[in-house]
Design a protein around this nucleic acid. Structure first.
Lengths: 147, 147
DNA sequence: GCTATCCGGTTCCATTATTAAACCAGATTG
DNA sequence: CAATCTGGTTTAATAATGGAACCGGATAGC
């Protein structure tokens, strides 16, 4: 059965998931932000079926998250390059990484998370901040709910 | 075909998606953090098929994101309550909401995002911060890649 | 220029995932 | 006590995913 569409949802999270919630989509964005560009780079790195990768890349291009550009090595091929809209997904990827690091890895287990390019160190934990600058705890945040 | 397992992945994002990347999972967490507790509340609010909801709730309980507690109204039923591990997914939900708000809604369109309970206002944009306190741009962050 | 390999898909098939709806037993309500 | 609610379970149809073969154009090496 075709998935329920969330594209008209009033909730921003739901709409976002409608765009990037398919299996593999966010990992493709991760890899594009990590510098992968060519179809076979994504395919080999992710180990994803080529027909699925084709479908996902097409959707990400259509949603303006990636764009096609001529390959930078001068060949006739194309590359998939993140757009500013695509790059704006980085905080979400960082948040997912930080949660995974905290809860899904043993203390002595190697774990890849986004790092500060200059220092090669992981980023500080994301903080939830109110408009007036107060730092918020989870309990200070309300998930507004569809009316 | 059974989805590829990402549970042994060295990348924290991938492992997180292995746990909460199934269709509906994050929206269930959103609703649980928003106060929904009972099976039929989730089901009616999400409009999800009951057999899928059953499967998802069970998985979220097994992963320690939600826990079962006796219903607070004294009946023999149970409620699904977020654990600290589950609540720690809030920054990821906020990040997804902020991206969706920025890119998937028109300026005059009603849009639900997490808000500060006290002021009822949306949170400030999440910031990426280095260990030494420097605020980082997207280009200052490196997505480390599986070796 | 030719051959072999690479590249980026497309197609096909089998298994799993999702939706929709019917069914059901226990719990609750009036 | 009967009707309704609750939280599932089961069934069937369609979509999604993985695996692999196929394919035409591009590239590389001789």
């Amino acid at each position: 059965m075709k998935r329920k569409s969330l594209e008209g949802d009033i909730c921003a999270i739901a709409r976002t998931l409608d765009v990037i919630g398919d299996w593999w989509s966010l990992l493709i964005v991760r890899d594009a932000l990590g510098g992968l560009r060519r179809f076979n780079e994504f395919q080999q790195h992710l180990g994803v079926a080529k027909n699925i990768l084709t479908t996902r890349l097409k959707a990400l291009v259509e949603h303006g998250i990636l764009q096609l550009a001529p390959a930078s090595d001068g060949t006739a091929y194309y590359e998939y390059v993140p757009t500013p809209k695509g790059r704006a997904l980085l905080p979400a990827l960082v948040a997912l990484a930080q949660w995974g690091d905290d809860y899904l890895f043993d203390a002595d287990e190697a774990c890849n998370v986004p790092v500060d390019s200059a220092s090669e160190k992981p980023l500080k934990k994301l903080k939830l901040v109110a408009q007036d600058g107060r730092e918020l705890a989870v309990t200070d945040v309300r998930m507004t709910r569809t009316a």
